[in-house]
């Protein structure tokens, strides 16, 4: 018997055990939330609060507005936790979806500008990223500057994809869109960013 196979088997058992333990923990946590236990509610706020606040802040822009929307998000989530279906999405994704919808509602109520993700957009793959003749650090700095010029919806998509490490499917669930649309949108944003840094370097 190959010792590597034996080791691999034990690693698999260990990883599987941890996975099952985590799953059981999450289920218990969700059940506690459904039973409206204050300890579980506090844990939800502590664990997922910063992520939700970041998303809301990215969308509404102002801290006061973000705090208001944040409260609405969690009051809604904690009172409607019974409607959460763990088979459809994870708790973080479900909370992000509520945060996204609440932010859009807030933006609409304040008549602020927001570009919604449209499924009817031309789903074109963007291949031609302009070549940039700068070193790595310079490109990163320029990209960061360019990001500030993007609309809030596009900044939010970049944040979800690169910072929160959400998949296209998860972002599609949050924004009530199609994964293909999100992919195309992200490609277009990327192209736009590189186009902007090319303009910066030309200037």
């Amino acid at each position: 018997m190959n010792p590597c196979n034996v080791l691999g088997f034990f690693v698999y058992i260990r990883v599987e055990g941890i996975r099952k333990f985590m799953e059981r923990e999450t289920n218990e946590f969700i059940n506690d939330l459904r039973r409206r236990k204050p300890a579980a509610q506090r844990r939800l706020l502590a664990d997922y609060g910063p992520m939700v606040f970041r998303l809301v802040m990215r969308m509404v822009g102002q801290t006061e507005d973000a705090e208001e929307v944040y409260q609405d998000v969690f009051v809604k989530a904690l009172t409607r936790i019974s409607s959460f279906d763990e088979r459809k999405a994870s708790l973080a994704t479900w909370l992000s979806r509520i945060a996204y919808n609440e932010s859009v509602n807030h933006i609409r109520s304040r008549r602020m500008d927001f570009v919604l993700i449209d499924d009817n957009e031309m789903e074109t793959a963007v291949e031609d990223i302009p070549s940039v003749n700068h070193d790595n650090e310079q490109v990163v700095l320029l990209l960061e500057q360019a990001m500030a010029l993007l609309p809030t919806a596009e900044q939010m998509l970049l944040s979800l994809f690169y910072y929160e490490n959400r998949s296209l499917q998860e972002i599609a669930y949050i924004t009530d869109s199609k994964p293909t649309t999100i992919g195309s949108r992200l490609s277009r944003i990327r192209k736009k960013l590189y186009g902007l840094i090319q303009q910066f370097s030309e200037q």
Binding site: Q71, F74, V75, V139, E144, M147, Y162, L193
Partner: peptide
């Protein structure tokens, strides 16, 4: 590069307000 730029951009965002979670608990 874009990932790094997004990370840096996110670090500049407003810090999480203190006492916000307590207010949420009161609302709940």
């Amino acid at each position: 590069q874009l990932r790094e730029a997004v990370w840096r951009h996110e670090q500049q965002s407003s810090p999480f307000p203190t006492g916000l979670n307590e207010r949420v608990m009161q609302e709940v």
